[in-house]
Design a protein around this nucleic acid. Structure first.
Length: 269
DNA sequence: ATGGTGGATGTTCCA
């Protein structure tokens, strides 16, 4: 048995916030860091600048300006290249799948950046909302076809707050993209194909829990209008391995920080 | 009811 800590963070520009990864590593001691919104093309990935952080196994899929995901690991890994879809046929950089070669055997890890979906919750008026719903449905179908999935984690910025207490006001956000019924139902259907919510394993559903606070609130901590958009899911066979979780709320106050904070899970596997 | 901020980019899009 060994300890495995996996963290996920929407870093909102990897190159701008490279230095903040030291703080993340020091606070959470993760074996694996999954990043979203790296906003860096693969040719410009700052591999050299990341070397002192000591995560020698890295995979990244990025593009100019938008999106982008990366996995930094102290555990050797292999990348799933050919057996993963091009979601919605868009060629976006929103997903990485790897197998971690842990001492107790391989563990499959998916890192997702789900489309934010724009402002208007209507797919005819706002194609971005339609794209988001289509992406979720496609992901649901893909995992549904992979019956009997085991030793698998799915993490990332899923851009949906599924539970009533994953937002600061359920009533006021029911028509706000990230908490509409089609989104929350879609996300739950996706999760139900193979996973359980590893963070809500520790925090009861009637307690408020957020991982994101808008830049547009002047005093984010005082207004506390947060949403839980960042998630860690595990297949149920891993549930007995769960040991703890951290939502690194203090990271929201880091100088020039992201609007998302890191989320981390510790397991004994 | 409105606008608020931030990142990458380039005279605006995305979140």
């Amino acid at each position: 048995m060994s300890t495995l800590r996996v963290a996920t963070w929407n870093i909102n520009s990897l190159r701008l916030r490279l230095g903040l990864l030291d703080g993340l590593a020091a606070a959470l001691l993760p074996d694996v860091i999954c990043l979203q919104e790296t906003k860096v093309p693969d040719a410009l990935f700052p591999a050299e600048a990341l070397q002192p952080l000591n995560y020698p196994h890295t995979v990244f899929r990025g593009m100019k300006g938008y999106n982008g995901v990366a996995i930094l690991s102290r555990i050797p890994l292999t990348v799933h290249e050919e057996d993963v879809p091009d979601w919605c046929g868009k060629g976006d950089c929103r997903h990485l799948a790897v197998s971690l070669q842990t001492p107790s055997g391989p563990l499959e890890l998916h890192n997702f950046y789900v489309p934010a979906g724009g402002d208007v919750p209507d797919r005819t008026e706002n194609p971005k909302y339609g794209h988001k719903l289509d992406f979720i449905a496609e992901a649901r179908d893909w995992f549904a076809r992979r019956a009997g999935l085991r030793r698998t984690m799915l993490v990332g910025d899923l851009n949906i707050a599924p539970l009533e207490h994953d937002v600061w006001s359920h009533k006021q956000l029911l028509d706000v993209v990230s908490h509409t019924l089609p989104e929350t139902e879609g996300l739950n259907a996706w999760m139900d194909t193979a996973f359980v919510d590893a963070v809500r394993h520790f925090v009861p559903a009637d307690q408020k829990l957020y991982t994101w606070w808008s830049y547009r609130n002047r005093d984010w901590r005082a207004s506390d209008r947060g949403r839980r958009l960042d998630h860690i899911w595990i297949t149920p066979d891993l549930q007995p391995a769960l040991r703890g979780h951290t939502i690194l709320k203090d990271a929201r106050d880091w100088e020039r920080g992201s609007d998302h904070v890191p989320v981390c899970i510790e397991m004994q596997i």
